[in-house]
């Protein structure tokens, strides 16, 4: 399933490492990464493919949310279709 991981919050070291480490450990392939820093606010968006993962989608989303709490960031995993639907005709 094509999905989007978004990470946002105050910038700090090791964010990409932690999130990509989690995705690697759960067989989620990262297809694209972009990031921006506005002031001290960090926002990272990853396009990922979850089809190889043995975990179900809800469990992955919960896992990332928990990881987000550990590193003090907001981390979300969402089906890519929601963004396609809202922003493309």
């Amino acid at each position: 399933m094509r999905a989007v991981v978004t990470v946002s919050g105050s910038d700090r070291r090791g964010i990409i490492a932690k999130v990509s480490g989690f995705l690697y450990a759960h067989d989620v392939n990262i297809e694209d990464i972009s990031q921006t820093i506005l002031g001290d606010q960090f926002a990272m968006i990853m396009m990922v493919d979850t089809s190889e993962s043995k975990e179900d989608f809800s469990a992955l989303a919960s896992g990332l949310e928990t990881l987000g709490k550990e590193i003090g960031m907001s981390v979300r995993l969402q089906h890519a279709d929601i963004f396609d639907a809202m922003h493309n005709i």
């Binding site: 978004t6 921006t36 907001s74 929601i82 809202m86 493309n88």
Partner: peptide
């Protein structure tokens, strides 16, 4: 295909 600002706009709509 959507871009970065689209993603952030959707998330802002939901969260804020």
């Amino acid at each position: 295909m959507f871009n970065q600002s689209d993603v952030l706009e959707t998330i802002d709509m939901i969260e804020k």
